[in-house]
């Protein structure tokens, strides 16, 4: 068995999940190859951490903490419901009212603007100047 093949089977070898002939082949390779044997040893040490990490002792205050958290949440819940109602219903209603008022105000302002625009045409704006010229000819103005 080659080193590459051993590397791909090492974790299964360490977990004893390989068929018997393969277990034997890997074992023989490790006995003859110090490089692979070293990696196998490192891997074994690293995987053994899993065993040491398991929770072996229980926290004696765990139930007290769960109960305290549960009670705290039960106390907070009524005001929590109120705040969620506020957030879910009142806020959108308030925003909708502001939006409608904004649109209404915009439409109203637009309408008054349109009215004034229709009364003042460009032609009418020129009339005073033309009339002024009628009343006071340019020659008279220059003479003065």
């Amino acid at each position: 068995m080659k080193c590459k093949a051993v590397h791909s089977k090492l974790i299964f070898f360490l977990e004893r999940e390989l068929p018997e002939p393969e277990m034997k082949a890997v074992q023989e390779h490790l006995a003859a190859c110090p490089e692979c044997a070293l990696f196998a040893e490192e891997m074994k040490k690293t995987l053994s951490i899993l065993e040491t990490e398991k929770v072996s002792e229980v926290n004696p205050y765990f139930y007290t903490r769960v109960k305290a958290k549960l009670d705290r949440q039960s106390e907070i819940q009524p005001s929590g419901i109120r705040s969620s109602v506020l957030a879910r219903v009142l806020q959108p209603v308030a925003f909708s009212i502001i939006l409608i008022l904004g649109i209404y105000g915009g439409v109203k302002m637009g309408a008054t603007g349109a009215k004034t625009a229709s009364t003042f045409t460009a032609e009418q704006e020129m009339v005073p100047y033309l009339n002024d010229m009628d009343v006071e000819p340019l020659e008279t103005f220059l003479m003065e």
């Binding site: 929770v55 229980v58 926290n59 765990f62 139930y63 769960v66």
Partner: peptide, 9 residues
């Protein structure tokens, strides 16, 4: 809680 604490943690 006491019976299943270890399992859950």
């Amino acid at each position: 809680v006491e019976g299943h604490q270890k399992l859950v943690v």
